[in-house]
């Protein structure tokens, strides 16, 4: 008996997490999947109607906007945050004075919820109060910055705020990665006559691959959950021009009494994540196992 326990201890330790995961993640996904096949409105009801909700979803113009926005947001947000984070990390890695202070400044937005900074951002981006007014007050009379109130541009203000919040964290990840690079390697490259740019491009960056991996996983995670960001900054507006799928789902499920439709949008979101993430996770994790 004791032997059995001893032998299976690892499995026993993992068991609670596994059970919780099966119920509270995958169980709930299945629950939502089933719900998306019903005509539930105010509350879950189990009258199945097939793929009706999905048909409604795809016919909804607001959903189109939300999906387009997600692509714009996801791509821009991840690329800008990665590039900015990487460059700040490289610059900060040049034996900078007051590195600690600067690093903290870059990192702090991650510590604050958007419920908190939303109002400040709204002011800064508002043409009548923020940057535009400031520049005009300073004498740049023709200066215009009114993305927040323009239907085509509002989504980019979400990108700005999201990059602000997360790029410092990406910087920290890269900085940590750079500190882990073997100095002998860079010395050797320099002896071979590599310029700084060559050194970073050919030697250091390839070593950063696992950092890219972590950063992309975390940024995707943040992007898909960027719900409070939209809520606090634009409320989805002007009109519903800056809606993201998470906001769409929330509104239709809880405020519009269309739980079935909300569930179908949630499933599409999950499939989307699945389609992007699974191949990536698979290839990355697989390769590492071969190392």
């Amino acid at each position: 008996m004791l032997n059995f326990l001893e032998k299976n201890l690892p499995k026993i330790v993992l068991a609670p997490t596994t059970i919780v995961m099966v119920v509270c993640m995958y169980g709930f996904i299945v629950w939502t999947g089933l719900l998306s096949l019903t005509k539930s409105r105010m509350m879950p009801q189990w009258d199945f109607v097939g793929l009706d909700q999905y048909r409604r979803l795809f016919a909804n113009p607001r959903w189109d906007v939300a999906v387009d926005n997600l692509f714009v947001f996801l791509i821009l947000f991840i690329i800008i945050a990665l590039v900015l984070g990487l460059f700040l990390a490289i610059f900060l890695d040049q034996k900078i004075r007051a590195e600690g202070a600067i690093r903290t400044i870059y990192l702090y937005p991650m510590a604050i919820s958007f419920i908190v900074t939303g109002t400040a951002w709204k002011w800064i981006l508002n043409p009548g109060l923020g940057i535009e007014k400031l520049m005009n007050d300073w004498g740049f009379v023709g200066f215009e910055f009114r993305w927040l109130v323009e239907q085509d541009m509002a989504i980019y203000t979400i990108v700005i705020a999201a990059v602000w919040q997360s790029s410092g964290f990406v910087m920290a990840l890269f900085l940590a990665g750079l500190r882990g690079v073997d100095e002998n390697l860079t010395k050797a490259a320099k002896i071979d006559g590599a310029s700084t740019v060559q050194l970073y491009w050919h030697v250091v960056l390839p070593l950063m691959r696992p950092v890219f991996f972590s950063a992309i996983v975390i940024l995707t995670h943040i992007a898909i959950k960027s719900f409070d960001l939209v809520q606090a900054l634009t409320g989805g507006g002007p009109g519903y021009a800056s809606d993201l799928p998470a906001n769409f789902m929330y509104t239709f499920t809880f405020n519009r009494a269309q739980i079935g439709l909300g569930a179908s949008s949630a499933m599409i979101m999950l499939f989307g994540v699945l389609a992007i993430l699974i191949p990536y996770l698979y290839s990355e994790l697989r390769e590492k196992n071969h190392d």
Binding site: L14, C24, M25, I29, T32, I224, F254
Partner: peptide, 23 residues
């Protein structure tokens, strides 16, 4: 166990709005 890890990792990506009601 590797599979379990992958499954758990994927679990990070569930939008929390989805689990509000069943939870």
């Amino acid at each position: 166990s590797e599979f379990l890890f992958g499954a758990l990792l994927f679990g990070c990506f569930i939008p929390f709005q989805v689990i509000l009601l069943p939870m």
